[in-house]
Design a protein around this nucleic acid. Structure first.
Length: 736
DNA sequence: AGCACGCCGACT
DNA sequence: GTCGGCGTGCTC
């Protein structure tokens, strides 16, 4: 109950409420608009917080209200639409607003640093100018040179001086004391990122399908979602390029989101070449200062094209005109910890709010997007054939029941590889399992090396001669003697490391390159390996998922999939969707130019109906079958899910917590929301914690959210909630 | 999350 | 006697 102007502020802490403050006594109203930051006393510390709302009064007694210390911005960093997104995210994903704000700001702004860097500007005083004109040259040549330089330029920034006269800082104290120079702090508002680089090049003429697609997508103004469904090589990129070009010509900014691994130099180079604009890159590899500069360029509109990964969905845009999400089915658009948002879904939400078109592109669209097309919410735009001369690859199975493997490779695989290599082709060997072998077993007693902190086996890494847990990161030395019986231990199963070794034995005269997260740990080694492969210098590529996305190997004729069977019997209801997507994705690497590509998949379950669907009807058929199944079981996209996860050092704590969550939910009598669990996670112990979960399922999103909201606010008050780790995952993509 | 307060065990 | 363990409570 207090008069006039209250700041409602989001603090970067895991707390769901806003906090009320009185404005700092000396701040101008301009600096106190929503979207501006203020520094506030919070508990015993000082925090940088963002104003989210202004109010006339506060619920709090006047005595508890504090004054904000100071305003940090003279204009809002986030505009109304940006703030809307932040609030939407916080609501939808049931996550503290302060952390949603944090997701939308670069680190330096979160820490309260200024939007524009403060730079020192050094200039001559009148005395300094006189001195410069005088005769110092012989006595103090360095001082003289310095003063002359300043006089010529009429003052310089610190950075410019660092370049022009390294070591000038040693003169600074002396000259300041003499009163010859003055140093002022100023905002460096100079546009720091140049985007236009060259004249755009004309692209190839569009084929009929591409023209139709372009027309369908561009048809109509305002918010639309188009699902651009085109097989690898069908020329999606060309359609993107026209759309981007159009939007930019209209003075609009374009935001392109790609999966984490998708930021390939090839794609970036193509954009730049064709549009004459260097896309502004936003990804996790940027340093704090570079990231801030990029953020500024997007916000102030100086960057027409922003290309980024997941987190870029939050970047403020001055004149937004189009959002493209490439490879929209890719799971890396979903953040898997903390604020568990889906950048793809937020792109659509943002497009709707800003009333502009959104394009989702994929050769293997998610079932969610396909279903939204069927329901008429999205437009489905299909690019049915490969552009140019390329023909689709030929898929076939090797039935492991009929063909035994040695070291993971069957005879038909080896034969096909020999044939392709002899014809001068390149071969990609795909195995989604890094390391040497997934298991280490004792020949004497059969004991298997396990991780002490997880319910998981240790993976053998031969290169480092160590055992590694891929779930918690634990490593230990590989002991050649069994800890139980002293017998000899042997690696069991195949990893990429071992596969590389085996292939070396078979194809010793070929150059073999392995690409997985171990071989590419060193900075630049990924690019180097890819360059070798792209140039055709390495004949055999061995690798994990990393290899299957976005790269173009012109000479690749054969793709070999060593083990596809884990996906067939996945406990997750998304298993077959994922498997089909990753197979089609990797198959798309084969035969993109004159020669028809070939894809061979080893499976021990050749009779599984999945294979018949995939081989006869491709992804389309698999997707249709999967959708029918999902409808029968009322899984997404025919219902909405939310997962309450809990992890604790003591198993009972996790379960007791979820039991109480269940009771809270049941008491709400929202009968249209099913509550499943609590159950232990399939891998119950991970990194020393016991994990369990409670699943909420409903066809009614609104109702589901009411329940979640209610459950969350009650749980936050539960003292048990402080003793364990817990989180809510709305629209989970990994149920385990 | 931080940060303080508070009440019980083995140390200079 | 007190240093420090982490349970509990609060942050406008």
């Amino acid at each position: 109950m207090t008069e006039c102007c209250i700041l409602r502020v989001a603090v970067n802490a895991p707390l769901s409420q806003l906090f009320d403050y009185r404005p700092p006594p000396d701040a101008s109203p301009d600096a106190l608009r929503p979207g501006c930051r203020v520094s506030v006393p919070f508990g015993r510390r000082r925090e940088c917080a963002m104003i989210v709302e202004l109010g006339d009064s506060s619920e709090l007694p006047a005595t508890k209200l504090k004054f904000a210390h100071a305003a940090l911005d003279d204009e809002p960093l986030l505009n109304d639409a940006d703030l809307w997104l932040v609030r939407f995210v916080s609501d939808y994903y049931q996550h503290p607003i302060g952390e949603a704000v944090a997701a939308a700001l670069p680190a330096l702004l979160r820490q309260g640093k200024p939007l524009y860097p403060v730079v020192e500007h050094i200039s001559l005083t009148n005395e300094g100018a006189n001195a410069a004109a005088g005769e110092l040259t012989t006595k103090a040549p360095r001082q003289a040179a310095f003063l002359h330089r300043l006089r010529e330029r009429g003052g310089l920034t610190g950075a410019a001086l660092d370049d022009a006269m390294p070591g000038w800082k040693r003169l600074r104290k002396n000259l300041l004391a003499k009163g010859w120079i003055r140093i002022a702090e100023m905002q460096d508002t100079a546009g720091d990122i140049a985007c236009r680089t060259a004249t755009p090049q004309h692209g190839p003429a569009l084929n009929a399908d591409q023209s139709a697609a372009l027309q369908a997508i561009s048809n109509g103004a305002g918010f639309t979602v188009s699902l651009l469904d085109g097989v690898t090589g069908s020329g999606k990129t060309e359609v993107y390029l026209r759309l981007i070009d159009d939007a930019i010509r209209q003075g609009r900014q374009v935001l392109v989101l790609v999966p984490e691994i998708g930021l390939t130099p090839q794609f970036v180079a193509r954009l730049e070449l064709r549009l004459g604009i260097a896309p502004l890159l936003m990804h996790s590899g940027l340093g704090d200062n570079v990231r801030l500069a990029a953020w500024r360029a997007a916000r102030d509109g100086s960057a027409p094209l922003i290309l980024g990964t997941r987190s870029a969905v939050f970047v403020p845009l001055r004149n937004p005109g189009l959002i493209i999400v490439d490879e929209e089915h890719d799971s890396s658009f979903k953040q898997q910890e903390g604020l568990r948002y889906s950048a793809r879904d937020l792109a659509v939400a943002r497009g709707k709010k800003l009333d502009m078109p959104v394009v989702l592109g994929s050769a293997t669209p998610s079932l969610e997007s396909l279903q939204r097309c069927s329901e008429g919410h999205y437009r489905r735009v299909v690019l049915p054939v490969r552009a140019g001369k390329a023909v689709p690859p030929l898929l076939r199975l090797v039935d492991l029941a009929a063909h035994p493997v040695t070291d993971g490779l069957s005879a038909p695989i080896l034969a096909a590889m020999k044939r392709n290599l002899a014809d001068g082709g390149q071969v990609l060997v795909f195995l989604n399992r890094r390391g040497f072998a997934p298991t280490l077993i004792c020949q004497g007693c059969g004991a298997i090396a396990e991780c002490g902190r997880c319910d998981a086996r240790m993976t053998v890494h031969a290169g480092s001669n160590r055992l590694q847990c891929h779930h918690c990161g634990a490593v230990r030395a590989l002991d050649p003697k069994c800890g139980e019986c002293g017998g000899a231990v042997v690696p069991l199963g195949q990893g990429t490391e071992r596969l590389e070794e085996t292939l070396n034995a078979h194809f010793g005269d070929c150059r073999i390159v392995r690409i997985d997260s171990d071989s590419t740990r060193m900075k630049g080694s990924m690019d180097k390996a890819l360059a070798l492969a792209t140039a055709g210098e390495s004949q055999i590529l061995v690798g994990t998922q990393m290899l299957s996305k976005g790269h173009h190997f012109p000479n690749l004729t054969l793709v070999v999939v060593i083990n596809a069977d884990q996906g067939l019997f996945s406990t997750d209801f998304r298993g077959t969707e994922r498997l089909a997507q990753s197979l089609i994705q990797v198959a798309g690497r084969a035969g993109r130019e004159q020669r028809q590509g070939e894809v061979i998949i080893q499976t021990a379950f050749a009779a599984h109906p999945f294979w018949a669907e995939l081989l006869r009807g491709g992804y389309e058929r698999v997707a249709r079958a999967a959708l029918e199944e999902r409808e029968l079981c009322a899984w997404p996209p025919f219902s909405r899910l939310a997962l309450l996860r809990a992890a604790a050092a003591a198993k009972v704590d996790a379960h007791r917590f979820l039991d109480s969550a269940r009771r809270i939910a049941v008491a709400l009598h929202a009968d249209e929301v099913r509550i499943l669990g609590p159950v232990s996670a399939p891998m119950e112990r991970r990194a020393g914690r016991y994990r369990a979960q409670l699943l909420f399922q409903s066809r009614d999103r609104q109702l589901l959210h009411q329940v979640l909201h209610s459950v969350r606010s009650k749980l936050e008050r539960d003292p048990l909630s402080r003793r364990i780790r817990w989180s809510i995952d709305v629209d989970p993509i990994e149920l385990f």
